[in-house]
Write a protein that binds this DNA or RNA. Structure first.
Lengths: 344, 344
DNA sequence: CTGAAAGCGCTTACAG
DNA sequence: CTGAAAGCGCTTACAG
């Protein structure tokens, strides 16, 4: 079933069918009615691939990506980019191009966002780290009717927004279950939050809530201490912690970000024993200790997939009007030594 | 960069460029050399979407799928079909059609396979349950140069073959780690294999090997008993098992197929306590007990994804000659109550 | 051995 | 308000 056949059945030209399909002006009520009827009867659906063929060279779909600069502690941000590259490779035949912009703080985020909004991008992908700035961007995007997808972190913004991210509450609950299974009900539990200069990250806060909710929901009363630690590249056992850790009983430690690899060595130095550790992200350092059985579980956020899904989702939205994939709940993937995902 | 531009640069017609691109006959050595050089210099790659446009209506890509009939105990087989349907929906614009055939034993498998091979399919997807019959099919497919992908189960066949499946050894090792974490080194372990009329399934055997390998590799000496049980829809605790289970110590039970849901109730009846269970597949019955905390972990084989990947992989192979995705290692996905994958 | 034309399903720019 | 033509990048069938 093609536009050509619809045209013949409706006794109009293919141009008119195209006009009706796209709700363009310049079609009489009666003609429109007739064409729509035929479309309905025949169950015709537009061939989106063919529709992109001419446009692929004539009018690109331009997507702007605004991500944290992938260095220092943000090596993680190389991963969503890989997914984006994969999506672009698949879609460049269909005329999709992506420009990447970087930020490293709220000011640079704002500046880059302003620049991007002025250019004529068809869609935007970014990360909601800064509430005020994210709201400003969202509002501008909405005003220009440019679809915007946030990945990685969910944030409560002034208007409804699209998020492709892991449910951090769920992730915390999974961590609770995993540690509970290892440590039991006679153990002590610790939530380690690494703070950066802006305090605790929204994701980490929610992960802790989820962790605590797991035990609450089950009605299990175990001691859960929160350790808020300034974000550095080392971890020290403070005097206070020394007291907490000073027992031979089982200890379950939930590190709410990607830095769980900082713990095993320092625990050895300070002779903290009988620990089970659950952390986030399959990075090189974490993997090292996972393989040595010093970290028990890692939770994977599938960052590559998040990047990939954002571009694919936006493409589907722009070409088919299908907004379903602009909001995704990325599964809480549990990683142990034996099922480490391939880095391809 | 288009075929048109290559033609201009090489001073030939687009027809000739097309001939070179497809290694067709009727191009002089010198012309071919020149065209290939330009292609290399310019880094031209064929636009596969455009290349399918005309062919999508003229010459369909016909794929035959031969699967177990999805009834009785084989409800599982609805899932790869869902993935296949999804792939077909995405690719039907590009002229991909799939015909489904069913088998329910080795004879019907052979009959259907024979029928399929006689028809002119461009590619085949099936399951290697029956060694002899699978070998026959593989040989015929190879003779006709029709690509064939087996999903679900890996099997050692006479010629190299394409498999999209979970690594069952790895899956068993993951199960070993999970149960070990829950049960510790003072517990007893049980591997429950459900046998069907052909004895134990290849997958289950490998899962058991992986499970045992986990403990061997770590040098952990724990008692691991194997229970081979005839495949029925119920599970009974036999006299022998009664003796085995008759202790209050922790017991780790690894069910190597999708029937772990048969255990919790019978354990209650027979007063078998302190059990941890790891099973396979996120089916309704298993989910019921997972949610009640009677099953601790389920291993997901991502059957939907297997079906989807088979069709996509074959399409890429047929249109781009890219065989990379015909052999896939589907991750060993660990499922707990809090991260049950959505059934969409 | 090579080229020119027709066409896949759609969109655009122009003509009326 | 509507149609006819040109073209996206490629493939095919035909002509020479």
């Amino acid at each position: 079933m093609s536009i050509k056949r619809i045209a013949k059945l409706a006794n109009v030209s293919i141009g008119t069918v195209d006009r009706v399909l796209h709700n363009r002006t310049g079609v009489s009520k009666e003609t429109e009615r007739r064409v729509l009827e035929i479309i309905k009867e025949t169950g015709y659906v537009r061939n989106t691939t063919a529709s992109r063929l001419k446009l692929a060279s004539l009018k690109k779909i331009k997507i702007a990506v605004l991500f944290p600069e992938a260095k220092h502690n943000w090596n993680y941000w190389k991963l969503p980019k890989k997914g984006i590259t994969k999506a672009v490779n698949e879609l460049n035949e269909l005329g999709v191009v992506v420009d990447e912009f970087l930020f490293f703080d709220s000011t640079s985020f704002r500046n880059q966002a302003d620049k991007i909004v002025l250019d004529d991008y068809d869609a935007l992908v970014t990360v909601a780290f800064f509430k005020e700035e994210s709201n400003v961007l969202l509002q501008k995007a909405n005003a220009k009717k440019v679809p915007l997808v946030f990945i990685d972190t969910e944030m409560d913004l002034d208007s409804p927004a699209n998020f492709i991210r892991q449910d951090s509450i769920k992730a915390g609950m999974v961590a609770g279950r995993l540690l509970h299974g290892l440590v039991g009900e006679t153990g002590q539990y610790f939530v380690v939050n690494m703070l950066n200069d802006r305090g605790i990250h929204a994701n980490n806060k929610q992960r802790e809530s989820g962790f605590r909710a797991y035990f609450d929901k089950k009605g299990i009363q175990v001691p859960i201490k929160t350790i808020n630690y300034s974000m550095v590249n080392e971890f020290e056992v403070t005097e206070e912690m020394k007291i907490w850790f000073d027992s031979e009983g089982p200890k379950g430690i939930f590190v709410t970000n990607s830095k769980s690899h900082l713990l095993p060595e320092i625990f050895e130095t300070y002779n903290v024993t009988n620990t089970s550790i659950v952390g986030f992200d399959v990075n090189k350092s974490n993997l090292k200790y996972l393989k040595k059985d010093k970290i028990n579980f890692l939770i994977h956020q599938q960052p590559r997939n998040q990047g990939y899904a954002a571009i694919k989702g936006l493409f589907d939205f722009l070409t088919k009007g299908d907004a379903a994939a602009l909001n995704l709940d990325i599964p809480v993937e549990i990683v142990v030594k034996e099922n480490v995902p391939s880095s391809k």
